[in-house]
Structure formats: structure tokens, C-alpha cells
Design a protein around this nucleic acid. Structure first.
Length: 228
DNA sequence: TGCCAGGCCGGGT
DNA sequence: ACCCGGCATGGC
């Protein structure tokens, strides 16, 4: 969010307090989410790509397939032919394009860091963010999910639910951009990795339950009643 | 049953 | 700088 817009909001509300109040309400309503649901940082990266515009249940099937075939490690995925990979991840939808995107990420990981996530993790956050964004198929949400949940960086993840929930409750203007919304959270919350992880997960939990696309604003939503 | 899901790209204005 | 069609399976 630009300084001008931030000041416009700040003039009549304390955003930091509002954001913490929202977090508390969500936490009380949904409890700890324990995201990301993965066993390793590498699995987080793969899941982040597979879940693009896709129900997590379907992603689980694709990841289960990879695990059953013992393919969920960088070298094996890097060497696996594209069409075979596509068939294995088929249940998560968009399988042809996602197979390419996984390959793009794996190629990046091997060319830049010899296939080692811990070497990628030596990069400074903003530098790495730009590099990951330059990989075809990795957009801001995917990259930020990797940075936060795989690499433990204090980057706030924005998604469709974040927009919808915060707009419907009049916390943000409708036309806000991804970067503005990310900045909105990052500048008004303490840069705490555990908080960021839990906050985004709680937003998704709330969205799945109360804020689906065609569902009108629900009176039982735990955020009802919070106002600026 | 039709609508939606934890986006992103490429081509067109 | 936006806007939109395409990508695709599975659950409710």
C-alpha cells in the first residue's frame, strides 16, 4: 500500500490493533492450523505449485502419488520425464502446465543451487524473492508461500481469500494490488514467522467455511462485528 | 448439477 | 497498466 493510502486508513483506525484483533477472533474460532501440511521444506515447495487455484484435497492425491513412487526429492523429480510427471500429478488438475512449472522450479534449483534447498536458503529474502518470481509459473503467492513456509522468512502470503474476506468486511478497498495488500500486513504486524504462518492459514480456514465466492457475508462469521 | 478450488501466463486492449 | 481466456480434476 502506498504511504498515501496507508495514511488515509491510519487516519481513522489503528491498523495494527485491528489486524491483531482479527487474528485473535480467527484463532479462537478455528484454533491452531499448524501450516504448512508437509513433512519437508521441499514438499512445501512442490505443494505450493500444485495448489495453484486448486483444492488442497486434490493436491494431496498428487503428493501421495509422488510419495508412493518415492519421487518426492529434487534429483528424482529433476530427472523424471515431463509427461510421466504430468500423469503422476494428474489428480490436482492443470497437470500439464503444473508439470512444466515444477520442472521450471527444479531447473532453477539445480542451475542456481545444485539442487540443494539449504543453498537456496542462504540467499537474502528480497533477492531470492525476485529470483523465484522470475521462474516461469511461480507467481507472488506461490513464491511467498515458499519463502514463509519452506524457508521461514517473515513474508505475508496473500491469496484470493485474503482479498475476499478483507474486502467484504470493509477492511481494505476492492482495487488493492497484491503488493499493496502484502505490505498492508507486513508493515502493520510484527515480522514474526510463526504469526504470519498461522495468520494466513486462519484466513484460508475462515474463507473455506464462511467466505466462498458465491456465499453472501455470513452472520456467523467470526469476523462479524469487527469494525474500523 | 453446476460451481468452485490456497494462481499464473500470454495475448489483446 | 489492466483484462480475459485457458488450463483440468474432484468434491459438494
Amino acid at each position: 500500500m502506498t504511504l498515501k493510502k496507508a495514511q488515509k486508513f491510519s487516519s481513522f483506525l489503528k491498523i495494527d490493533q485491528l489486524l491483531l484483533e482479527i487474528y485473535e477472533k480467527l484463532f479462537k474460532a478455528f484454533g491452531p492450523q499448524g501450516w504448512w501440511p508437509a513433512e519437508t521444506p521441499f514438499e512445501v515447495c512442490i505443494g505450493a505449485i500444485l495448489t495453484q487455484n486448486t483444492n488442497w484435497q486434490n493436491v494431496e492425491k498428487a503428493i501421495r502419488n509422488l510419495k508412493q513412487m518415492n519421487l518426492l526429492e529434487p534429483v528424482k523429480l529433476y530427472q523424471l520425464p515431463l509427461d510421466e510427471l504430468a500423469q503422476i500429478i494428474r489428480p490436482c488438475g492443470y497437470y500439464n502446465i503444473k508439470a512444466k512449472r515444477l520442472k521450471n522450479f527444479l531447473t532453477f534449483l539445480f542451475k542456481e543451487y545444485k539442487g540443494e534447498l539449504f543453498k537456496m536458503a542462504e540467499e537474502e529474502t528480497q533477492v531470492l524473492r525476485e529470483k523465484l518470481l522470475s521462474v516461469k509459473g511461480l507467481g507472488p503467492e506461490t513464491v511467498d508461500s515458499i519463502l514463509l513456509y519452506a524457508l521461514e522468512r517473515p513474508v505475508f502470503v496473500v491469496d484470493a481469500y485474503t482479498y475476499r474476506i478483507f474486502f467484504r468486511h470493509h477492511f481494505i478497498p476492492e482495487e488493492i494490488s497484491y503488493e499493496e495488500l502484502r505490505s498492508f500486513f507486513e508493515t502493520n504486524l510484527p515480522p514474526d514467522v510463526a504469526l504470519f504462518k498461522e495468520y494466513h492459514a486462519l484466513i484460508v480456514a475462515c474463507g473455506k467455511t464462511y467466505c466462498k465466492k458465491a456465499t453472501p457475508l455470513c452472520s456467523t462469521c467470526p469476523l462479524q462485528g469487527i469494525s474500523r
